[in-house]
Write a protein that binds this DNA or RNA. Structure first.
Lengths: 231, 231
DNA sequence: GGCGCGCGTAAAGATCCCGTCAAGACTCGG
DNA sequence: CCGAGTCTTGACGGGATCTTTACGCGCGCC
C-alpha cells in the first residue's frame, strides 16, 4: 500500500533532530514544513494546514503542551509528540491535552515513520463532516435547524425535523426502525413502524425531486431507512 | 471531559496481566470482555463488536499479528498492541499490520489508560466509519451497511447482508454451514443447508465479477463457505 | 454404469413489509 | 370558542423478501 503524500509540520528547536526527521519524512514522499519554536509552530499550523504535526515538548518559548492545546482549539489534525521526557506523567499530560501519540527520544526512524503512517491512516478516514447535508435540490442545516429546497425554506413540523435530523446525523448509513422510533417518539413506541411510513412520505414529498422514486431518503426493507447525501 | 463508557476487548494469555488490565479499565467505567487466545479473540471481536481491542502479541495459538490482520479484514476498530517485544522491527510490523498504537511491557497503567482515551477519542469522531471488505470490483462496508460494485450501490436484503457479514467477520477462514445457519436463521434451521445455496448464489450474482466462477465467495464442499478478500 | 450426495440454478407461491389515502383526534393561538 | 395545523389511527393494494419446490450437473463409490 503506497501512502499518499501529505504535508507534515515539524516543530522542534534542535536543528539536528529537526532536519533529521524532516529528511526522513521527505524520503517517504511527504512535504515538510519546519518550525523552530512554539510560536512559529502555532502560526505554521494555521497557514500550512498540515495533515499531521510532529511537536517537541521542550521548546524554548513556551511549552509544547500549550501548543497542543492551542492547535486543538481549532483543529483536529493528528498531533504526534516527540519528547526527551520519558516520565509517565509527561506522556499522560500530553495525550490528555490532545496529542494522538507520544514517542520518546532516542527513537528509531522506522518506528517514527510507522507511527506517522498510522496517524495519516486515521486522518484519511476522519476527513470531512459538516453540519449541512445536501440532497439534490434540498439542503438540511442541522445546526440552524432549517431545511431549504431550491433556496427557499421548507417548513417542517417538529416530528418531521427530528426524524430528518436522526437520518442526517447518520448520513449514508442505515438507521433502524427502532432507533428512529425511540429517538423521535420515545421507547414506548419502539415498534410503531407505521409512523415512520407516514412521516417518511411527508419528508419525501417536501424534499425529494421525485417523491415516488426517492434518491436520497431510501428505505431498507425490514431494517430501517437511510439518508444518502450528494457527492 | 468525562470519557463515555465503552466496551473494550482484552486479548492476553497471561491471566495476571489480563485481569490487571481489565480491572483498570473497569475502574474507568468501561465494560470489558476478556479472551485468553487469538482464536477466541477473533470470535469475541466479532460478537461483542468492542469499541477498542487491546491485544498481546505473544499468544499461544497463533500470532497477534495474524489476529490484527483478521480483524482488519472486516473492521476498523482501534487496536492497541501490548507486547513484551521492544524491538523496533516488531513495532513497525504491528503498526503496519493495522494496529493503532504499541505499548511495551512493562507499562504504566496511567499511560495505558491515557492511550486508551486517545483511541476512544478517535473512535468517537470516526464513529461507525467504514469497516470495508474489498472483493474485486465490489466493496462492502459493514458498518454503513452498504455494498458497491464498480462504484454503484448494490442493494442487499437483510438476510443477504447478515450472511455476508458472518462470512466477512471470519474473512479468509471457512465458516461451517451450521455456524452460518444458526447465526442467520437461528438454531432451529441449523440443518437447512439449502438456504445457503440460494443466498450464496444471490450474493455471488450481486458481488462477484463472474458469478459462475467465484473468486471471493468460495464453497468448501461438505464443510461450509469462505470469503476471501483482496490484498 | 447406476446411484446417492452435495451443490448450483431457476421459478413460483406465501408472507411480510411498505407506500398511499383518508378520516378522526389532538393542540395551540387567536 | 373556533379553526388551522399537527399528530394519530385505520384500511387497502402493490411490491419486496423469504420460503418452497423442482430440476440439472459433477463427483465418488459400490
Amino acid at each position: 500500500m503506497t501512502e499518499p503524500r501529505a504535508t507534515i509540520l515539524v516543530v522542534e528547536d534542535d536543528p539536528d533532530i529537526r532536519r533529521f526527521v524532516a529528511a526522513a519524512l521527505r524520503a517517504e514522499g511527504h512535504q515538510v514544513a519546519e518550525s523552530a519554536d512554539a510560536r512559529r509552530g502555532g502560526i505554521d499550523a494555521g497557514t500550512h494546514k498540515p495533515d499531521l504535526a510532529i511537536v517537541d515538548l521542550g521548546l524554548p518559548d513556551f511549552d509544547g503542551l500549550e501548543l497542543i492545546r492551542r492547535i486543538r482549539a481549532w483543529s483536529t489534525m493528528p498531533i504526534l509528540v516527540l519528547s526527551a521526557r520519558s516520565l509517565e506523567r509527561a506522556k499522560i499530560d500530553a495525550l490528555d491535552a490532545g496529542a494522538d501519540d507520544y514517542v520518546t527520544k532516542p527513537f528509531g526512524v522506522g518506528e517514527l515513520l510507522a507511527r506517522v503512517r498510522v496517524a495519516l491512516r486515521h486522518r484519511a478516514r476522519t476527513a470531512g463532516g459538516g453540519s449541512v447535508v445536501r440532497m439534490g435540490a434540498a439542503e438540511v442545516d442541522l445546526a440552524r435547524r432549517v431545511a431549504t429546497r431550491e433556496g427557499r425554506p421548507v417548513h417542517l413540523t417538529p416530528i418531521e425535523f427530528r426524524l430528518l435530523e436522526c437520518l442526517a446525523r447518520h448520513a449514508g448509513l442505515v438507521v433502524t426502525h427502532r432507533a428512529l422510533l425511540t429517538e423521535v417518539w420515545g421507547p414506548t413506541h419502539a415498534s410503531d413502524t407505521h409512523y415512520l411510513r407516514i412521516y417518511l412520505k411527508q419528508l419525501r414529498d417536501k424534499l425529494e425531486d421525485d417523491p415516488v422514486r426517492p434518491r436520497h431518503l431510501l428505505t431498507e426493507t425490514g431494517v430501517g431507512y437511510r439518508l444518502v447525501p450528494d457527492e
